[in-house]
Design a binder for these strands. Structure first.
Lengths: 163, 163
DNA sequence: GCCAAAACGTTACGTTATAACATTTGATCC
DNA sequence: GGATCAAATGTTATAACGTAACGTTTTGGC
């Protein structure tokens, strides 16, 4: 039923392909994946987990020392609005979204140990949530579901006696 | 099925009763609802919606001008750990929880218009979430579900043509 | 080329949260 | 009732997160 995609250590996807797809997605909406936005998105795509704004800034500054906070926050605002990235409110951090044609924020599984993030979609769960809300006359505009715990890899590791 | 309780404008509950219940809850856990914690909880209980840490601080400072950020953050940390309050990560704000014997963070319905907050519990939804996570080998330790939209009152108001 | 809108540069500041260490309070033991 | 240890609080300073405001550059249509 639910489908997913990972942001974890095993990232070996085609970065250029993902960036090209994102650029197309923007173009189709009459927007542009400019160089700065592209750089921030590339960093998020390559990150094993989520990244914080100031960590992104530090990376950007390696190439462009004059970059300032608005540089990265503007790019992030754009990427989030375009559905190309999500903000994890519980961590003040950001992750790339590879499923940007699916127009919403899914369930985020955030590993407390390795900090990897999986995004999972379950439309029945979302429907149930909307029903619950409707019972109280509440109409849902947006939702954010963040789940903390241990991912499969870290559970295995823990069993062997982890540091 | 799902049950709820409100933090909205119609609060006319018995503040002293709620505080006494909270104090008992703490005592049963070998902890104390000290004066500062009690004051912060009282502010949260009386608030129509959520409150920000620095707004709480400003209120506390009316009685006690020397109060500083750690004063309120310590109280909030305690209240959240004890289940007497929840943090709304999406707003960097806090709400009292009247259902503290129920040991978890439910679904938070946050009105974009009047900023009221309803907390709702739906164990089947939580179970479904845990199942989805388990499909990917992820074990859930904690979850935070924040839903934005319009509450019943604000939907009605909007229909009349709201400012 | 001219213009307007979008994007970006730059400075400064506002907001949110915590580290670190000193002091006080409170319970317990004797 | 004083010694003592842990919990709570006081106090200062600073770290971390985010945005306002305004000027400049770039882009795309005419």
């Amino acid at each position: 039923m639910a489908h997913t995609h990972t942001h974890a250590h095993d990232y070996a996807g085609d970065l250029e392909h993902d960036l090209a797809a994102a650029a197309q997605w923007c173009a189709a909406r009459g927007e542009k994946l400019t160089e700065q936005r592209r750089e921030v998105l590339a960093l998020l795509l390559q990150a094993p987990g989520s990244m914080k704004a100031y960590d992104l800034l530090a990376e950007i500054q390696k190439q462009k020392p004059t970059a300032a906070p608005p540089t990265v926050y503007r790019a992030l605002d754009f990427l989030v609005a375009a559905g190309l990235a999500h903000k994890l409110d519980s961590k003040n951090a950001f992750v790339a979204c590879r499923d940007f044609e699916h127009p919403h924020h899914g369930v985020m599984l955030i590993c407390d140990s390795c900090h990897s993030v999986k995004e999972l979609s379950d439309e029945r769960l979302e429907a149930r949530l909307a029903e619950d809300a409707a019972q109280f006359g509440f109409s849902v505009a947006a939702q954010d579901i963040e789940v903390k715990g241990l991912c499969q890899d870290c559970r295995s590791t823990d069993q062997q006696g982890k540091a």
